[in-house]
Design a protein around this nucleic acid. Structure first.
Lengths: 193, 193
DNA sequence: ATAGCGGCCTACCAATTGGTAAGGAGCCAA
DNA sequence: TTGGCTCCTTACCAATTGGTAGGCCGCTAT
């Protein structure tokens, strides 16, 4: 059991860092001081290992990201967004892998079982729907707003390493400091401005 | 000459769709009814081919995305963002590849020549800096805002295929219809709210 | 003692990878 | 005609890929 968790952790790291094709079973196994056959023994195939990693991520996301008993307030959505932002930074590897999955998905898109994000998105949309400022808005508008805010978070979370090299560590730290406040303004961005 | 362009186009398509490791020289060549040695003849190695694709993208981005003679107006930034959004949708493959590059970059991050986005980012930041509403904001705040808005655009552009499968084509069309208007509100999201 | 079993190994395999070497077809200039 | 050049080919290669087959070791139940 212990081993299985270690395997999932190592696989997450390498898949997140190098992508599905970029990471080989052998590399993952070596990271654990095992042979790739140990991995195959536990998960069958590379695809299934990858799937198990995705399942683990989505479980974490569901149990941690959205509290179902969200307090109903005018800023409920903005509050949830703040929490999601913090969580995204903490689980950067999850974020990286989900981003990669988003890119790769379009090929095997027809396959089922890949909508790990759907309940999450729906939950956020629900939160926004209950906001008095948003009750007159149509569905498309609500989902669009949710997605734009999520995009702002995830894109940044995935970019910090590049930004640090493009500018400097201090520059990125300055951005990180401003981020929550500006994110809040995005989340609140007016319905009737 | 003609062939070189066709090669770059095919490489872009496959790299964007499957990533650097996911696309093989052979696949790219077959797409052109050539052998992979033709590709190697023109570009030397796979890495160099990939590099040439990135260079082509960044050139397109620089010449098209930001007009240097942007009219100075209160909504100059929001206008630029609107144009960038349209361009992003039109060149979705470019967007996909740049997103992948963003993810992969963190490994070979120290390498030079990969800051294709920097002049683009700086240009946008400049635009925002000249906005009267933003003149008192510090650098971190400005860059953060620019990046959040860019994130909203790119994340969505890269997600539409997945979203179509997750919900429906109509759902995504509804989002696409709302997008520009909501994006504008994001871009304008208040400085002193 | 021993049979079974989960956990992991070595040995091996076909397929695919990026890349080298060498040569041929077509064209143009001398 | 000859030589050279560009563009592309076939033939080949070592390395790596994911995966199969089968066996060894240590634990537990009988």
């Amino acid at each position: 059991m212990e081993t299985r968790q270690r395997m999932l952790a190592a696989a997450l790291r390498l898949f997140a860092e190098r992508g599905f094709y970029g990471a080989s079973m052998d590399q993952i196994a070596r990271e654990l001081d095992l042979t790739k056959q140990a991995l195959i023994h536990h998960f069958g195939t590379k695809e299934k290992l990858y799937g198990a990693v995705l399942v683990a991520i989505s479980e974490r996301l569901m149990t941690e990201a959205i509290q179902p008993t969200e307090v109903e307030s005018a800023s409920a959505f903005a509050d949830a967004v703040s929490r999601i932002y913090l969580r995204t930074l903490q689980h950067r590897e999850d974020t990286l892998l989900l981003m990669r999955e988003l890119l790769d998905n379009r090929r095997r898109a027809a396959q089922a079982g890949t909508w790990y994000l759907k309940p999450f998105l729906d939950g956020l949309a629900d939160l926004l729907r209950r906001d008095p400022n948003w009750q007159e808005e149509d569905e498309g508008s609500i989902f669009t707003h949710v997605y734009q805010v999520l995009g702002a978070i995830n894109y940044f979370a995935v970019s910090t390493a590049t930004l640090e090299n493009m500018y400097s560590v201090e520059h990125v730290e300055a951005m990180q400091e401003c981020f929550p406040e500006r994110l809040r303004k995005l989340a609140m961005a007016g319905v009737d401005t």
